[in-house]
């Protein structure tokens, strides 16, 4: 009974968590806690066989299957908070509560009589006792179960099977396709340029430089560009130099030359309503929107990638960023789609 009073609140809290947590993966983990606690309650109630089955089948097989499918569908998939039917959530909660009260009242009024206990039935071990009942009185149901399992396995295979409609391209096909793209559309024939090789920490987020000093657009992974975490090569150079001189020294955009003393935001001449970043990278006053020149995205405060983004230009509002030709970050991909 001690195990019950410890585990019951945990289970109820975790089950309620499944209702409110937004990410499906967290739901699966909370469900795992509930199922393992249930297994312990089975063990407490003289059902060691079902304790093992609960752990192996439910937490081992079924929950892993859930997690597999979640990984396939996209771990980021989370519920939208928009109600399609107005007031549905409140009504569902009220109905659930009413149902719970009804069920509890009904169940609590039933007298189960004297608790018999399973000592007699479990004589000689729980597993042999279950086997004796299962293979005598319930043998037909057991056989039908095997038919059910085979049908389920077949059904899953049929549903998950995908006909290949076109032949699988081999390497020669890929090469021919590449040549065709080059001839028809002028697509670059060789491999994409690698990211910058002079980066200090993670080279992948720094684009390569073309001979004229501009950045090569294909050299950073598309996913990074979409998130807006790409660093520009000049910004990185300043980084290295300021690191060598000492973090406090203000450094201008031209390398080692000290910048003119910064008094307030420096008006950028590029777009109206935009300012250059301050030497220490912090937010210029009144310009909270971050812009990323490489990816062409802007990030508003509170956005998903806002904190990671290194601003090359700061805008005073989302409107002026849009006027400058920047796109709102995250507007390209929906909530349930995966990148790539």
């Amino acid at each position: 009974m001690i195990a019950f009073w410890i585990l019951a609140p945990v289970m109820v809290v975790c089950a309620l968590g499944i209702l409110v947590v937004r990410k499906a993966v967290h739901c699966a983990l909370l469900l795992a806690v509930v199922m393992i606690s249930l297994a312990v309650l089975y063990a407490v109630q003289d059902a060691p066989f079902l304790f093992a089955v609960q752990i192996i089948v439910y937490t081992g097989a079924i929950l892993m299957l859930f997690l597999f499918v979640l990984m396939l569908v996209g771990v980021d998939a989370s519920d939208s908070l928009v109600e399609t039917i107005r007031g549905q959530r409140a009504v569902a909660a009220a109905m659930g509560l009413a149902f719970l009260v009804l069920l509890t009242l009904g169940v609590a009024q039933v007298s189960v009589g004297v608790d018999q206990g399973l000592e007699q039935a479990n004589e000689g071990g729980n597993v042999p006792a279950i086997a004796r009942v299962l293979f005598t009185r319930y043998v037909l149901a057991f056989e039908v179960t095997s038919a059910l399992l085979i049908t389920a396995a077949l059904g899953a295979m049929v549903l998950a099977h995908r006909e290949r409609l076109t032949p699988k391209p081999n390497q020669a096909d890929w090469a021919a396709q590449r040549m065709r793209d080059f001839a028809e559309r002028g697509t670059h024939l060789g491999p994409l340029p690698p990211p910058g090789t002079f980066a200090r920490h993670n080279a992948v987020d720094t684009p390569a430089l073309l001979p004229d000093g501009s950045t090569a657009p294909g050299s950073v992974p598309r996913a990074l560009a979409a998130r807006g975490t790409v660093r520009t090569a000049p910004a990185h150079e300043i980084d290295v130099i300021s690191h060598e001189i000492g973090a406090d020294a203000p450094v201008g955009p031209m390398g080692g030359l000290p910048a003119p003393p910064a008094e307030g935001p420096v008006q950028s001449d590029e777009w109206p309503g935009s300012v250059r970043p301050l030497p220490d990278g912090s937010e210029p006053e009144g310009h909270p929107v971050k812009g990323n020149k490489v990816s062409g995205l802007f990030h508003e405060p509170g956005g998903r990638w806002y904190a990671q983004t290194r601003a090359e230009v700061w805008f005073d509002s989302a409107d002026s960023a849009e006027a400058a030709g920047f796109t709102r970050a995250g507007s390209r991909s929906g909530t349930t789609t995966k990148e790539d």
């Binding site: 299957l65 499918v69 279950i130 319930y138 179960t145 389920a152 059904g155 549903l159």
Partner: peptide, 29 residues
């Protein structure tokens, strides 16, 4: 099952688990 002192309830729970496994396989597919 414990209250009644026989194993029929446990057998029923066992079958529920089997059916749940089959159901999850097809449903997730």
């Amino acid at each position: 099952a414990r209250a009644n002192g026989d194993l029929d309830g446990q057998i029923a729970a066992f079958f529920v688990m089997v059916v749940a496994a089959a159901e999850v396989v097809v449903g997730l597919a």
